[in-house]
Design a binder for these strands. Structure first.
Ligand SMILES: [Mn+2]
Ligand SMILES: [Mn+2]
Ligand SMILES: [Zn+2]
Ligand SMILES: [Zn+2]
Lengths: 150, 150
DNA sequence: AAACAAATGATAATAATTATTATTATATAA
DNA sequence: TTATATAATAATAATTATTATCATTTGTTT
């Protein structure tokens, strides 16, 4: 935890931004809920528990900044809100997601499965890939079981 | 064109919806601008040229309906708006996109490159894939040339 | 024609995000 | 240290996209 915070602090300093108490509180929430996919509002409410005086706009600004520095990835699963996802330590690319159309659960796929596809895009399409977003929509394990039973 | 409209008409009738003049005008705009990725507002303005009396809410309702029937796919490229993309004739899955982070251009990749990845997701993760969204972010051909020149 | 259901247009309401502005904290220079 | 400049913040207003409401229209079924 402290180690991750330290790395992020350095990434901020490298661009001459500082890790203010508000920014640190926000990062801590993101670290504590790393598996989740929280909206700005969600994060705001959680940060308030640590730092009750924080304003919503500051949370938005912090998330915006962390996005620019590629510390978090901003993603949209099709409901009206943006969600913020901490990038896995050392990961080159954003990870993939499995979204269940029955129960709404979101699972993470940390292995990068797109190496070959990326080569095709670069070679056949002449497009220089920097990053990607891949989401599968379907039925999760639990919901499959539930369907068989009923 | 008329052939595609006819097919869509049948898809609607199959679920006992009708192809009203407003819906038809909307579908015509989508067909005419098939390569583009229009927002609801964009579509509204274009439909108005054909059917000036149409209301914005009707456009939203129509797009919602077409999404449910999988005639269009709703997608979000990270700016605040939803965009609507006609599904290619006979396509099983939504196609892929290449978004240039320099100039903002969006290119379409119609070949489905995810067959193998999908197998891994189904076998190793036990997740039953119904559809997917894949977007690459990077530098398009034109912008690469521009960079070399300068 | 009467009755009913589906669809529409106008517009109000909602919700997410961004902009503004006065204030506060932090860093730098004299 | 004190003064001064800069960056960041909180509160809140404004904006924007989308959805909800409701009276009216259209089309269909008796
Ligand atoms: Mn994730
Ligand atoms: Mn497309
Ligand atoms: Zn599920
Ligand atoms: Zn480009």
């Amino acid at each position: 935890m402290e180690h991750r915070i330290d790395r992020i602090k350095k990434q901020l300093h490298a661009q001459s931004y500082k890790l203010t108490p508000q920014r640190e509180a926000t990062v801590r929430v993101l670290l504590e809920r790393e598996e989740d996919h929280l909206s700005a509002e969600d994060i705001y409410l959680l940060v308030k528990e640590k730092a009750p005086e924080i304003g919503l706009a500051t949370v938005y600004r912090t998330l915006e900044l962390l996005s620019e520095l590629k510390i978090v990835d901003k993603i949209n699963f099709g409901d009206g809100v943006s969600r913020y996802d901490l990038r896995k330590e050392g990961a080159e690319h954003f990870h993939h997601h499995l979204v269940c159309i029955e129960c709404g659960s979101v699972e993470e796929v940390v292995d990068d499965l797109l190496g070959d596809v990326e080569k095709i895009i670069e070679n056949d399409w002449g497009f220089q890939v920097k990053d990607h977003r891949l989401t599968f929509h379907g039925i999760c394990k639990q919901c499959q079981k539930a369907t068989v039973k009923s």
